[in-house]
Design a protein around this nucleic acid. Structure first.
Lengths: 203, 203
DNA sequence: CATCTTAAAGCGAAGCCTTTGCGTTTAGCG
DNA sequence: CGCTAAACGCAAAGGCTTCGCTTTAAGATG
């Protein structure tokens, strides 16, 4: 088994692109209509109209193919809305992020990306996507004249706890958890100093 | 494929326990001496002196077996040392935790646990183990009369960012990252209020 | 202590997945 | 327009995976 980095150096147009699109579509369709345990490479290949050996050569094992499809679906399609304040935007984004990731499909996508192995660079795209979204909001806040935390701090204080809870605890966190993380982060960041308010409702 | 929760309701003694021990040992031995891609269920079963069907019945797929073995190795074997102050203990523990988890074997163990699927309760043991270790340090600090954050806050502010960085960024974080997280957490927690010091070295 | 019950392991065969080599197609390029 | 090499289709060999049935032994019961 040789290490491969599919989709990195793939030819952009023509047959290769068509095959990739067809296989991705086949995976999404079959994941929607059948149990995950019933999917096999030959089944996906048949739906996509290619031979199994093509899939094996380009993606290797099934988990790698899932990881590729998952990253594709994880890419955000819209920029966060301009709501006038950083806290409102971060809160809205974090709540939506939590709800999407804590859902069944979201959890499976995260697991798929990680199941692809820690040696493939695809998993880094997840934090890049989130970081880029956060940067948009931070830039807007700076343009308003606010004093804001930096991008990595938001990743540490908001995104990381959400993902950690989704991956390693039961039950999955609720939307209020994201709101609390954002509030705690911004409570001491700029002007307002002081210890965070005591909370009795932490799980 | 039926959902199974191996090792949960396993009979504590006798043949079942012997088989489990033998299979676990076989996995560890083979992982140490051969490439991961070369391992197969029949190979592991032969080393353990059992038939492949036994492994398939109890653990299902290879990733599930890896997840089971990984959780076993993730269990901490010692309590954190008493160093006289919470910050010293948390810092020492967090640095060691980061180094272990960011290493090749540590990363693979985390990935293995998650690859076992998000429906199995085993993954929660990871946060339980960490939380228990943290609780020991917090209890000691409380006994000293300190005002300390609660267990979940430490998980959010220290453990979650470390794990998130290991899973989703390259390169892996360095030990100083753990130290910074602990310092930032304790900087505003008890008496000392105010914004965290500005840092130019955040990646 | 003897007997019973049942979960778990062994065994073997059938089926499907996975791999691999080779010929063919086709995209990218001078 | 022709060339080169990457990518795909095809087919066969090999090995993994599953499944029904049998056997074993741990734990319960009287």
């Amino acid at each position: 088994m040789v290490l491969m980095s599919p989709q990195i150096g793939v030819r952009p147009g023509g047959r290769s692109a068509r095959v990739q699109q067809a296989v991705h579509d086949a995976v999404r369709e079959l994941l929607a209509e059948r149990e995950r345990d019933e999917l096999t490479v030959p089944l996906i290949a048949a739906r996509a109209g290619v031979t199994p050996s093509t899939v094996y050569r380009r993606w290797g094992q099934l988990p790698d193919l899932y990881a590729d499809v998952a990253v594709e679906r994880l890419r955000p399609d819209t920029s966060p809305a301009d709501l006038g304040s950083l806290e409102a935007e971060l809160d809205t984004w974090a709540v939506q992020y939590l709800e999407e990731m804590a859902s069944g499909p979201g959890r499976r996508m995260i697991a798929d990306v990680l199941a692809g192995g820690l040696d493939n660079p695809r998993r880094c795209l997840c934090s890049t996507y989130s970081g880029d979204q956060i940067q948009v909001m931070l830039d807007r806040a700076v343009a308003r004249g606010d004093d804001v935390p930096d991008r990595d701090t938001v990743l540490d204080r908001v995104v990381a706890p959400i993902v950690y809870r989704i991956l390693f605890t039961d039950p999955a966190p609720e939307p209020g958890y994201a709101t609390r993380l954002v509030a705690d982060l911004l409570a001491v960041s700029p002007a307002k100093a002081g210890p965070p308010p005591e909370r009795a409702d932490r799980r």
